[in-house]
Structure formats: C-alpha cells, structure tokens
C-alpha cells in the first residue's frame, strides 16, 4: 500500500481548524460571560465580597458555609424549593398531558385553538408574575372573591400575603405559563406515534382506553421522563415569578434557594454569601443529575 502523500502543512491545519473557526465566536462569548463568571463565583464563596463594604474581599475560608448551616431562612428555602419544584412540574405535566391528548384529535379550528392555548408561553415572565399578582389582589383581581364564593377562602383576602398559602400564588402562575411547554413537547411525541399502530390495535380488538394504555403511554414514557427531568432543574432555578409576586415573603415562606441567592446578591449586595448559597445549589443539582443517571443505568441494566 502506498501511503497517501502528505498534504501541505497549512492545508491540513486549515482543515482541522475549520469547524473551530465557525464555532469560535460563540464559544468565546460563552466562555467569557458564563464560564469565567462561574469560576469567579465559586471563588467568591470562600471570600468576603460585599459591594457596600470597600474593605471586603478577603479570604474567609468556610465561614459562609458555617453561617449557612445556621441560617434558618436557608433551611426554609430548601424545603420551599422542594415543594415549589415538585408541585409546579407535576401539575404542569398533568395539565400539559391532558391538553396534548385533547389537541391530538383533529377538529375544526384546531390551529387557532392551539395558538390560543400556547399563547401564555410567549408572555414575558415578569408580566406573568405581575399579572397573577394582580389577579390575586382582592382590590383589583377577581380570584379572591371567586375562591371565597366557592368556600375555599374564609374571606376574600390575598393568598400571596398568607404564609400558609402564598407559595400557591407563584405555582399557579408557573403552571399557567408552563403548560404549553409540556403540551407542545408531548403533542410532538404523540404525533410521531405511527397511526397504523392504533389501527392494528383497533383491529386486534383494543378499546380506546386499552389503546392509550398499551400504545400511547409506552411511547410517551421516555419523552415524559426526559422532559420532567430537565424541567425539574429548570423550575428549581426559575426565580422570576417568586421575585415579582412575593419577593420571597411573607416571612420567607415563598423563598426558594434560587430566589434567596438573588435576594442576597441584589438586595443585600453580599456577593460572597450569595455565591456560597449558589455553590450549595449547584451541588444539589449535580447530586440530582447523578441520581438520575444512576437510576437510568439501573433501569438499562435491568432491561438487559
């Protein structure tokens, strides 16, 4: 075999470099604005960085984490993060799945109906938050009065200022805003199920419920799993609605870890402490991702 003659060095270099030339601008921006701050932020967790204090900046070791261990607000935020994430994702999934199934049947005006029910997704999140805060406000919004009329509220008051109910405010807004996401994803999955499968099942004598159970659900399961996993992380990090609607209050009852980070950085300008909390959140998310990967591996191994 004669080896291919070696090509000129510059030409080989050019071929190697080509994909990198195309992707370099994007990678540079991402590195400069996301990765570098990420690393810097991690270093802040071990330093005293306060914007209002010109003498800050020194290394404080694990002080922030010691403070964090005794921070009651942080512990409340952890619990809130759990409920906020689980409830939001599950309710979004439930209503999103129902909507996807409803839209999977052809009917007249489906295009328009689809555009209308998906519209909330396009509403800016700050506006979504404000809008729902107004709806929950008894002076201007109808919801407290309706809830009162239904007997769900003792008096038409604002649930956003009720420590026991406040978290439901942002959850409602998040569900309203997030249903389209699940519906669209699941609808796409539904429409990728070959229709001859349903026809074959129908000929085999399966009723609609059996068809849903034996064809639709198994097909949707992987999509649901992956969507729920990714959405969980996203919702846990999602702070806009909480910041706009309750600012974490009343009495930290709606404070999540992510919104607590923002409060520390934005209101108290304590970047060191905020970064320490961020690091904990990052670890929690990593642990979650790892857990999911392990579970997945277990499931794959079991299938073998």
């Amino acid at each position: 075999m004669t080896p291919a003659p070696r090509r000129p060095f510059l030409q080989r270099l050019g071929d190697r470099a080509e994909p990198w030339l195309y992707s370099a601008p994007a990678l540079i921006v991402i590195t400069a604005v996301m990765l570098v701050p990420l690393v810097v932020g991690i270093s802040y967790a071990f330093r005293d960085v306060q914007i209002l204090n010109p003498f800050s900046g020194g290394f404080v070791g694990l002080d922030h984490f010691r403070a964090l261990a005794g921070d009651k607000a942080f512990r409340v935020a952890l619990v809130n993060t759990f409920w906020w994430t689980v409830l939001t994702v599950l309710i979004q999934l439930l209503f999103g799945l129902i909507l996807a199934l409803l839209l999977d049947t052809p009917f007249r005006g489906r295009g328009i109906a689809q555009a209308l029910v998906f519209l909330p997704w396009a509403v800016p999140t700050f506006l979504t938050g404000l809008n729902w805060a107004w709806l929950f406000n008894p002076t201007i919004g109808p919801l407290p009065h309706w809830l009162h009329a239904l007997g769900l509220l003792a008096e038409p008051s604002n649930i956003l200022s009720d420590p026991n109910l406040a978290l439901w405010g942002p959850i409602t807004a998040a569900v309203w805003w997030g249903i389209p996401f699940f519906a669209i994803t699941l609808l796409a999955a539904l429409q990728s199920i070959p229709s001859d499968l349903y026809e074959a099942a129908a000929i085999d004598g399966a009723n609609p419920f059996q068809r849903f159970w034996s064809i639709t659900l198994p097909f949707l399961a992987p999509v649901i799993a992956i969507t729920v996993l990714l959405r969980t992380v996203w919702v846990a990090n999602f702070t806009d609605l909480i910041i706009v609607m309750t600012g974490g209050g009343p009495a930290d009852r709606t404070q999540t870890v992510a919104s607590y980070i923002f409060t520390q950085a934005f209101k108290r300008l304590d970047f060191g402490y905020a970064s320490a909390i961020s690091l904990v959140l990052l670890f929690l998310l990593l642990a979650y991702a790892l857990l999911i990967l392990l579970l997945r591996q277990r499931l794959i191994d079991r299938d073998k």
Binding site: M1, T2, A4, P5, R7
Partner: peptide, 16 residues
C-alpha cells in the same frame, strides 16, 4: 478523504 494510495484524474494526482 483518501486514507492511503493515490487517485489521478487525467494523469494528475488529485488527493489534495
């Protein structure tokens, strides 16, 4: 790309 050997079109090696 050609891993080894040569291809010539009209007598001219075109590998590169």
């Amino acid at each position: 790309a050609i891993s080894a050997g040569t291809i010539a079109i009209g007598g001219r090696v075109v590998n590169d």
